[in-house]
Design a binder for these strands. Sequence first.
DNA 1: ATCATATGTACATTATATTGGACGTTGATG
DNA 2: CATCAACGTCCAATATAATGTACATATGAT
Lengths: 261, 261
Amino acid sequence: MDAVQDEAAGKRARGLDRAFEILDFLRQKRQALKPNEIAAQIGAPRSSVYELVNLLLSNGILEFTGGEGRVYLGRKLYFLGAAYENHFDFTRECETTLEHLADETRETAQFCMLDGNRYTVVRMREGARPFRISTDVGQSVPIPWTASGRLLVAHLSDQEILNFIPPQDFRLPGGEWLEPQTFIAEVRQAEREGLFTFNSIVDSFTHCFAVPVRGEEGHAAATLCLVTPRDDGIANRDRYLGCLKKAAARLEHAPARPKRS
Amino acid sequence: MDAVQDEAAGKRARGLDRAFEILDFLRQKRQALKPNEIAAQIGAPRSSVYELVNLLLSNGILEFTGGEGRVYLGRKLYFLGAAYENHFDFTRECETTLEHLADETRETAQFCMLDGNRYTVVRMREGARPFRISTDVGQSVPIPWTASGRLLVAHLSDQEILNFIPPQDFRLPGGEWLEPQTFIAEVRQAEREGLFTFNSIVDSFTHCFAVPVRGEEGHAAATLCLVTPRDDGIANRDRYLGCLKKAAARLEHAPARPKRS
DNA sequence: ATCATATGTACATTATATTGGACGTTGATG
DNA sequence: CATCAACGTCCAATATAATGTACATATGAT
């Protein structure tokens, strides 16, 4: 999400942006890497990356792990993330809601949010017959690839949507091009109906159901999803959507706590 | 913890350091603050703080919340923290261990680590008769104030300990001065015995027990603690220490997972 | 009305952070 | 042995980020 302004060639990058680019990259890779590898793969000057990595190491934002000078996200980030989680205390309710959903439907239930201008699965509960889910928890994925994506950008105007989503994200995993106007039409439809369902674009055997979890501003702060085998999904469509709606309503009425419990 | 090198007066602060100083400060405060307040309280130039806050906002590291332009830690930090937690997957084992400990002893059990050069409670499980615990989860506290602190720095040499702990942290909450040499003697004793217990320095009615959880390098990567009423603690000393040792051993044999489960 | 405080914005200055490139390893390969 | 690639360090040059200062607005007290 940071490499958006790659346009100007000769510009220097700001240290802070580079730093978070490194952190995001490590998160995507989900493994420790050498500074050299990081530099090569994000296309940043090696000297800059070494400098930043050392700074981040000395702050506990990064840690040596995996040997050979490899680094990964550090403990400090865990503490900061825990503070966020504690403040916007959605996880407890979220976990029980997903559990309930998965029990009711025997399908895989997910809680999803935007991660910058992409989509990510924040929590997941496997269903009764777990199958290989296409997107793992914590991976960020182009918004147009997902059912939830239609709901998560619905509060934006057409133009804002086009500005928000990186153009290359309309290229689907199979290589086909999703016309932005088609996507926007689906967004508007999802907005009207308060839900979106489709046969997954990412694989060829699942059906996805998504409903919004509305925040204080009234727009979708998150989504609840079910990922099902296609036959199952189509057969149980109405029941599954009912379960999702009910679960979303429960989450909405458990607002962010102001302070400690 | 970052304002250590306040020595040189006329020096400019590096953006990255200031940024993480802001993040750490918000974590300590555990509430949303206006940029102006942040600047005043951390003693940084207002223009710098506004600049950094805006940068961090646009990256999702900070978020507007609480109205009136107040900001707090953002969702991106949660994602990064979750990635850390997923990589060094200690939390699951940790949670069950604390639960077991609290059930066995009916006392408050804690899992503690270093946060930079201070101490913090990472996870806590209240005992049967919860009383007002002096340090909350996520707050960072001077190392010399805690029993665990004696264990967490035991792998350092005397000189390294003195360099590592901010000098002002030897000033105890009551105002008394803890002689660094006294502290170091206690560290060495804790190291020999593989445990440390004392009547809490922070309050006047609890007794603390701490044992190390050793990481791969052999030194205390974390501690397990019990916080008990003084009478109880002294009466059950041997049993409690036995429980702690057993729990620590269990945690040590559930090492950090390399990748996904 | 006057003053003081809290808050956010705008901009020029200059200290310095980012960067490209040189240099020195090491290890693998022909 | 010669060559190449991967890796880390060092350093000078300059683009720019951090800062001080001034400005604008709102609020409340006197």
